[in-house]
């Protein structure tokens, strides 16, 4: 894109040698090893997990601290800005594909596996003949009975919350572009509040489902896809909210102007992406 637009910084910013990547790698190594140990009841596991998480948090503060310093010192030129935009777009594309794997699993089970198992076929007779094809309550012989989550209660409220948060965030962005800082702060704070409410309601929904509806991770194909899709989505909302909170902190310190605020835009792109995932999820996990 740069050649066609002719954007070349006289000196493209190349960061100095940095300790943060190797710190991040050590943290992820501890997390990976710790998780493998913890899942197999090795006692060192949870300590490794804790250490890994602490190292990662340290790395995030250090690394993003460097980035923010470089940005506020005006070291990022126009071409670097293009790089950031491309980079964030491709990162979001990779996230789309990650969710794609789980949506793919959901579609495959609903369209192929569950009908096949319930169909009058050899597979059906050999595995268990009493199995009736049904969705969402498709239970095999070793799955306890459970209830499915209805869409028009909490999930619908959550949909409204997330959609509204997309609007408030765009409103905040307008405030930033028009240099109305108060407007920007209120918009960001509202978005965060809506995001936090969403997460709170989601946690309540999980608690309710797990304890009163007997809907767990082990509740057959439905339970697995329900928790994995909504769970990974919830984790992404959490990450998006942390990003937005960081942006609010930076706004309060007087960072960003109407020309230079890519960090804000990146967080906003991410938030809108998480919104869209929820809409697809609401339709395919809750409604249909």
């Amino acid at each position: 894109m740069n050649v066609e637009n002719g954007v070349h910084d006289p000196h493209y910013f190349v960061p100095a040698p940095s300790r943060w990547p190797i710190v991040g790698s050590s943290g992820l190594f501890c997390l990976a090893l710790g998780a493998a140990f913890a899942m197999n009841s090795v006692s060192a596991g949870k300590w490794l997990l804790l250490a890994g998480a602490a190292i990662i948090i340290w790395m995030l503060f250090g690394w993003f601290g460097d980035v923010i310093r470089e940005s506020t010192h005006g070291q990022y030129g126009k071409q670097v800005d293009y790089s950031f935009r491309w980079g964030m777009s491709w990162f979001i594309f990779s996230e789309v594909m990650f969710f794609g794997a789980f949506f793919g699993a959901l579609f495959y089970m609903r369209v192929i596996t569950v009908p096949e198992l319930g169909f009058d076929s050899t597979t059906h007779d050999l595995l268990w003949s009493g199995f009736k094809e049904a969705w969402p309550v498709a239970t095999g012989p070793k799955v306890d009975a459970y209830h499915a989550m209805a869409p028009w209660g909490l999930p619908a409220i959550n949909t409204a919350l997330l959609l509204t948060s997309g609007v408030t965030l765009t409103w905040a962005h307008w405030g930033l572009v028009e240099n109305q800082r108060g407007h920007l702060k209120i918009g960001l704070a509202l978005t965060l509040l809506l995001g936090a409410t969403f997460l709170g309601l989601q946690a309540y929904e999980y608690h309710h489902a797990w304890t009163e509806m007997q809907l767990t991770l082990a509740s057959g194909a439905y339970g697995a896809t329900f928790y994995m899709l909504t769970g990974f989505h919830g984790m992404h909302v959490l990450v998006g909210a942390i990003m937005l909170a960081t942006m609010l902190g930076r706004v309060l310190r007087g960072h960003f102007d109407k020309e230079h605020h890519f960090a804000f835009e990146a967080a906003a792109w991410y938030w809108h992406f998480v919104d869209v995932v929820w809409l697809i999820l609401f339709v395919f996990v809750y409604c249909i």
Binding site: M39, A105, Y108, M109, I112, T113, V114, E116, L117, L127, A138, T139, G140, P141, K142, V143, T216, L217, A218, S219, G220, A221, Y222, G223, A224, T225, Y227, M228
Partner: peptide, 17 residues
């Protein structure tokens, strides 16, 4: 480790998936 049935026919999943 967490009891899901993505790839287990016993809960409506499928190793072919």
């Amino acid at each position: 480790h967490f009891g899901t049935h993505f790839f287990k026919a016993v809960g409506g999943g499928d190793p072919v998936l």
